[in-house]
Design a protein around this nucleic acid. Structure first.
Length: 505
RNA sequence: GGCCCGUUCGUCUAUCGGUUAGGACACAAGAUUUUCAUUCUUGAAAGACGAGUUCGACUCUCGUACGGGCUACCA
């Protein structure tokens, strides 16, 4: 069973945008595969024709492209084990359903959904299993000729897995250890649907994982209850010796309150729960995405990796490569993790600082342009280097640094009251003269000359700088004054100074 | 209801029988600074509860409580 090549898959169903919890599951699969030099497969579980959503497949692919998570094979990537879209594997599933039928491990059932609903209404806690199957309409309870007649007559039927009761089924989970259940509590699951003549998840999953030689199944905790059923299916096919190892990941929970993380939590608390923005093709409703909300993919990945896993030390900032090195399934936490979006913002802040100024400037440039301002990249890079430590998002750089691009129209009243004194206009006039006389307007030279002047006049540094700041910025914020005037240049600096003198008096 | 899984600061978590229970986010205070922010320092903050096992339990066992998941011809 072990010593096999590591092959894992991420297998979403195209029913809408990819949930952030799904992204984490995919990430863990990816990290595990890469760490072991294995393959990461993208399989599409589109066996529910009713829930198919146009555009979902492309959305999922685009999400992983943005995040930088790469697949080795699967839908749109090719590979030796295709097709990777389950709707294209109908014939394969038919063959394996027949094997189960022929060996008596499964049976045909004619009960319609309506009949089943009625039974559920009549009998409390009705379950289609060993205790009830003989009172239902199926190939176990009916004579063979009648069954054949119905089939020949074109009657729709499903194929159900015949669960033998009273058996202890053990699932060995990498994260949780041995999980044991009694097969009596399992129902005779539908393996093959009559409605769309496709298998259910359970059958398709086992057949595909076997055929694709998947070595490890890393998936959400919501699958844990059906894992024993899957073990039984492997057994029924005689594939138990190559059955994949299981690891069931804890769920992502709401930031506050009860239950698992949902789209509505994002709307309510103002953070996305999808990697990219998604427009529902049916309703036109738009759900926000991390990309559009200005998150860096590295930050999203780093944050998600640490939600339910940790490297065992105090290191928190890790690149994708470092995560691949350090990841360990047995260090995954068993309990669900609340989604702490404030910490996520902190990760984004850290990655903005980590990235090159030029790279952030390139991301910031469109924001600046959207405000109708054009600026050269060299200057923008300088501004970014001065300002990026102050923001959580690239777009916030505008709010923080717009004074570089646009001269103040008004002066913040509170700041003016506090920083603009009786004699400020006079002193700023003197400062303007000092600056105007400068041939070398470099930051260093400005600072040296201005401080000389302040000292010679016996002024205090604070009174000059604060008034100077108010004149250039319009309020009491920003980096060191000469970093501002240096970037603004002599002409603009003097113009702003003179205007402040005029307006503030 | 039944079944399964879980439970350490507000949140994410470290600890794999012996620790002053550590770190991070958030929060608070202080310091530095030409303002604001950053940064730095400090602080407050946790083993759900009850039994057992043990020389010793956050760590093992059982029970209770609470939380989560599953219980479809959805995945």
């Amino acid at each position: 069973m072990n010593n096999r090549r590591v092959r894992v898959r991420f297998a979403p169903s195209p029913t809408g945008p990819l949930h952030i919890g799904g992204v984490r599951t995919a990430l863990y699969n990816y990290l595990f595969a890469k760490q072991h030099g294995g393959d990461f497969i993208f399989r599409l579980e589109d066996t529910d024709s009713n829930r198919f959503v146009e555009g979902a497949e492309e959305y999922i692919l685009e999400s992983f492209r943005w995040l930088g998570i790469k697949f080795d094979e699967g839908v749109s990537f090719g590979g030796e084990y295709g097709p990777y879209r389950q709707s294209e594997r109908r014939e394969i599933y038919k063959k394996y359903v027949k094997i189960l039928l022929d060996s008596g491990k499964a049976y045909i059932a004619f009960d319609t959904p309506e009949e089943l609903d009625k039974k559920r209404a009549e009998i409390e806690n009705f379950q289609y299993d060993a205790s009830t199957r003989m009172m239902m309409r199926n190939s176990l309870s009916m004579p063979a000729e009648e069954v054949q007649q119905l089939i020949d007559g074109g009657h729709k039927y499903v194929v159900r897995f015949k669960i033998e009761p009273g058996e202890k089924v053990v699932v060995n989970d990498i994260i949780r250890g041995a999980v044991t259940i009694d097969s009596s509590i399992l129902d005779d699951k539908v393996l093959y649907k009559s409605a769309d003549e496709l298998p259910t998840y359970h059958l398709a999953n086992i057949v595909d994982d076997h055929l694709m030689e998947v070595s490890h199944v890393i998936r959400g905790e919501e699958w844990l209850p059906s894992a024993p059923l899957h073990v039984l299916l492997y057994r029924a096919f005689g594939w138990e010796d190559t059955m994949p190892a299981f690891a069931h990941l804890s769920l992502l929970l709401k930031p506050e309150g009860n239950g698992k993380l949902s789209k509505r939590d994002g709307d309510r608390l103002g953070f996305p729960v999808f990697p990219l923005e998604w427009k529902d093709p049916a309703t036109g409703a738009i759900s926000s995405g991390y990309r559009e909300a200005d998150y860096l993919p590295e930050a999203v990945i780093n944050f998600l990796a640490l939600l339910g896993w940790n490297p065992g030390d105090d290191v928190e900032l890790m690149s994708l490569d470092e995560l691949v090195q350090k990841f360990d399934l047995s260090h995954c936490s068993k309990a669900g993790a609340r989604f702490d979006y404030k910490k996520m913002m902190w990760f984004n802040h850290e990655y903005i600082i980590k990235k090159d100024d030029a790279e952030i400037a390139a991301l910031f440039a469109p924001v600046v342009e959207s405000h109708g301002v054009s600026v050269d990249m060299a200057t923008l890079t300088k501004i970014v280097s001065l300002m990026k430590g102050r923001v959580n998002f690239v777009h916030e750089l505008w709010e923080a640094s717009s004074f570089y691009f646009v001269a103040p129209e008004a002066y913040d009243e509170k700041t003016a009251k506090k920083r603009w004194k009786e004699d400020s206009a006079t002193k700023m006039g003197e400062l303007a003269a000092v600056l105007e006389a400068l041939d070398d307007f470099s930051i260093e030279n400005q600072e040296a000359r201005v401080k000389e002047w302040i000292e010679s006049k016996g002024y205090s540094l604070g009174e000059i700088m604060n008034a100077f700041r108010l004149a250039l910025v319009g309020e009491g914020k920003g980096p060191q004054m000469f970093d501002i005037s240096g970037i603004l240049g002599k002409e603009e600096t003097l113009a702003r100074l003179r205007r402040a003198i005029e307006v503030l008096g």
